[in-house]
Design a protein around this nucleic acid. Structure first.
Lengths: 397, 397
DNA sequence: CCCCTTTAGTTCGTTCTCAGGACTAAGTAA
DNA sequence: TTACTTAGTCCTGAGAACGAACTAAAGGGG
């Protein structure tokens, strides 16, 4: 129930202009037509945005008739944010341009005994030299994160952790988010679509859901923790219960199953190589997983009804090997005809997706505010209230 | 990416005022404090709303100090909408005040052979005399509804149905929605909470999810069709597939199970009576269902992470008999500590919930527009774009 | 070469809405 | 009766968009 005043109008209209320019260069006249604003209003706002260094004038158009217009576009690097992923195996840190370009990236592994304190300290240390002028730092964790607290991260073995005290005097606003949710945001923010599910499948299994351009978080940040759907099997799960779906679909189980079929592979890379090389056991193991995933996607489709599913995590690399059996199973088990042809694709940002999503938390906010980065979000970690992208078409569309 | 102008400000501020007054009477000074608007602005807007007959002045406050204020409240019956449920067994039609009061209600059964055309014709015929001055008619169906089309309603045996041609020249805007989704809306619109799952369990099983005050619909309107999650059992389902969850949890199965235990009950009412009377078979059957439901709720909790679950449909009547075993199972299977204490309650509007939700589609829109009912939504059925209630606190809170 | 048409973009006067201060109204307390 | 406090109104000024008039820059036709 926000109130309105003149500032609010200006904010709305700046946002509309920046939002349209995210999709590509446009003239003032184009903007006037697209937004419905009077030409004079567009001129004034554009002038202001040029002054602030957010926009740049580019080439002139050459229309068949009439005076040519001047193309306007977002000035590269005018704004950027830092994003990071604290993953099971290592950390990714990057700087992301407001147009979606990765300006800088760095990855490192960590000693197996490293706890949250050490890992976060290293992250902040590496981020510090890049922090100048950044909008903020958004980092992700493979667990349930709500309002700056990590409730549970079974695959890290961490739980009930307040992240705020670990941030020290880092000079930027910081937000924490679940990895699958941030990945989903990265897709929707830069590549469109208002209804989307981002499936992260590696050791664990989780999904980030975007509905009508908004990230689904839930009351405790646990929406989309579908790896912990209980099935019939009763294998023990890292979360302490038995029968979670990720005990059946997690990639550890793929290797086990391969061995049970008589195959020999010391890790996933080897298994992939064997499957690609035509090994029947390897292919069989892949098909088994693909089949299970297809069936799982049919359930995901009735739960969230996304327009598109993006596959990330290690499974993105496996995807070509799984695709056939997965599609067959999905078609066989789909509830609606539309679900039979549900597009399923590997992630566009690849393994950078979570970190890109982390940075998007801030970029999204920046666009949401029409480029007015007044008082940022709360200083430290947590739930992010207003990240949404109207029609979800994104700049890639 | 909406643009803004002076009208937009006024709309926003009218909305803020009406939104606050939904929770109860307030003085102009209260409104000024709550909205952050200047006293003068509040005065002007209130004057306007009084003129339009939306508000009424009431008693004076008696503060310990200073001049007493005049309480303002929404004028009863100033606006209302029609809502209806086309259910498996019958039809419910009602008129709902913008404050949530049921002004008028009517129910009827239908001949078993009645098709969509006959049932809708009867509905419109009954609604016509009440239509004058109503904001619109929102009706629900137990199936997947998207943009005025019914894709699939297994328990009605209908599918791929364009509803628009069946509306004839009915003189109001009409919207169609899934019953569980509408029921969820009824709860959130009148009784608060921004994250909520409304579970409809009768013959079928479905859930309406509200996340951050917004109804989750999905790309095809199929979000929340959790009755068609595939499990391990392979019983045939009305949707044509095998193994859907509603074949295990649907109330038909409860009776079957009771009979398998040696019990005798010709229908649900009899079974309930026996369970209440202490019959061990009946209680056993109930416990079995309660246990399965509790486990199911644990899955629902990780899928959507609601702050509260409301139980509707026939199961609402059964709820006292199920509650114990349900809670035990939920506590045993919960993923997060928070889920162990997830509040589960029967529906406040009881069996009227879907129809109330149908009417809420229009009432919600009315408040969203700040009481300016300019051009309504599209003439006929369908997806409802902007229904949202900021903080979800509702008037009951 | 000039003029007409078309489209881009600017300038300026008007209108709408809110903010904020001055003012009036209506109560309590001393 | 006077001081104080809070409610509500009135009026002026500022910010923002609208829309009409205007200038700018192209192509085409006579």
């Amino acid at each position: 129930m926000r109130k309105g005043d003149a500032q609010e109008i200006r904010r709305l209209n700046r946002r509309a202009i920046l939002g349209h320019l995210r999709r590509g260069p446009l003239t003032r006249a184009d903007l006037s037509r697209l937004t419905g604003l009077a030409k004079s209003a567009v001129s004034r706002l554009v002038e202001e945005l040029l002054q602030e260094g957010l926009l740049e004038e580019g080439a002139a158009t050459s229309p068949p008739l009439g005076r040519p217009g001047t193309l306007l576009h977002l000035r590269p690097r005018a704004r950027f944010a830092l994003g990071a992923e604290l993953g099971v195996e290592g950390t990714v840190l990057l700087a992301l341009d407001w147009r979606g370009e990765v300006l800088w990236a760095r990855e490192w592994r960590h000693p197996p005994e490293a706890g949250p304190k050490e890992r976060l300290a290293r992250l902040l240390e590496e981020a510090l030299p890049q922090a100048k002028n950044a909008l903020g730092l958004g980092f992700t964790l493979p667990g349930v994160v709500v309002e700056g607290r990590l409730l549970l991260a079974p695959n890290l073995g961490w739980q009930e952790l307040d992240l705020n005290p670990l941030l020290g005097d880092f000079p930027l606003p910081v937000l924490a988010e679940n990895d699958a949710k941030a990945s989903a945001l990265s897709e929707v923010f830069f590549h469109g679509e208002a209804n989307l599910a981002y499936l992260v499948l590696s050791t664990g299994l989780g999904v980030g859901v975007v509905a009508e351009g908004r990230l689904l978080r839930g009351a405790n940040g646990a929406a989309g923790e579908v790896g912990h759907w209980l099935g019939e099997e009763a294998k023990p799960c890292a979360c302490g219960r038995r029968g979670c779906l990720e005990t059946a679909l997690g990639l550890g189980t793929l290797l086990e199953h391969h061995r049970a079929l008589g195959g020999k592979a010391k890790d996933l890379e080897e298994l992939m190589a064997q499957a690609a090389g035509g090994s029947p056991e390897a292919q069989k193991a892949m098909d088994h997983l693909g089949e299970a995933l297809g069936r799982f996607l049919a359930n995901l489709a009735v739960a969230y009804d996304p327009a598109r599913v993006v596959v990330g995590g290690k499974a993105a690399e496996l995807f070509p090997l799984l695709e056939g059996s997965l599609r067959r199973a999905l078609e066989a088990h789909a509830f609606l005809p539309a679900h039979r042809v549900l597009p399923v694709q590997p992630s566009a940002y690849g393994h950078l997706a979570p970190a890109v999503g982390g940075a998007s938390l801030f970029l999204a906010r920046f666009f949401e505010l029409g480029g007015l980065w007044a008082e940022g979000p709360r200083r430290n970690g947590g739930r992010y209230e207003e990240v949404a992208f109207g029609d979800g078409r994104g700049i890639g569309a």
